[in-house]
Amino acid sequence: MDSWTLPLLGGLLIGLATALYLLILGKVVGISGLLANALFNPSNRLTALVFIAGLIIGGSAYGPLFEIRTPLPEARAPMLLIISGLLVGYGTRLANGCTSGHGVCGLARFSLRSWVATTIFISVAIITVALVQ
């Protein structure tokens, strides 16, 4: 199979999920927002937890269901993961979205805010990787 087939198929599935969520429930899929609702918004907590449960179950099908094509990286230092988690957790709240809300849904509905945010976080991440490696 070509190297782009499965990533494209995976992307189409992610797109299908956001399409169903929009057309059936009227909402934008944003993982950072869902996590915030699960943590801090009692009235939306159950919905957010149900989504996250589905996400984790589907996302851990890698291995049991799909062939592992690329090995996982060797476990990184806890400090690196902690700093990364803090920045992702805080940054996505401040920017009101992450790769899903801005990067998929926002780009698709031609939101200027999302195009700006996505350009920034991808560029900054590329620079970060270039500096670290």
């Binding site: 992610i14 999920a17 429930l25 449960a53 179950i57």
Partner: peptide, 17 residues
């Protein structure tokens, strides 16, 4: 619907690595 959406989203992430 919410659960299925989450599941499809997760499967998409897994399939695309």
């Amino acid at each position: 619907v919410t659960f299925i959406t989450g599941l499809l989203f997760g499967l998409g992430l897994a399939l695309s690595e």
